[in-house]
Amino acid sequence: MKTSNDCVNNNYLEYVKSISPKTKQKRSLLRAFWVGGVICLVGQGFRYLFEYGLGMSGDELSSYVSMVMIFLGSFLTGLGVYDRIGKYAGGGSIVPITGFANSVVSPSMEFKTEGYVYGTAAKMFVVAGPIIVFGIASSVLVGILYFIGFRIF
């Protein structure tokens, strides 16, 4: 039986590649840059607010800032605005923490029709699940390596 690999017709794929429309490189990079920069500026704004306005510092400060950013990302997703930003900015809105919030909320909203347990809750991490998995797993690895390191040296 044929597998997908047997079907590969390199001449055809080359030809398709040669006539496929190209992403507008400069434009997309510029958009990612300024939107990404602005989102970070918003984060910095909250940082100043919490630092000088509420007298927070250290881990507490950065935790609250990321909480606010996640709130904004989720809210804009709910309003149906974030995917517009994403379409415009690409990487500029995917990479900030607001994009993480977007990837949590969007499947959750989408699958609400399948119920509040198996839809909203279970499908919440369809897109963002790997981030939690790899993040926590790698932090445990780093922690253990450092623990061994500290005990040896």
Partner: peptide, 8 residues
Amino acid sequence: YPLELGCV
């Protein structure tokens, strides 16, 4: 993807 996911 879900409709509201901001992807290109």
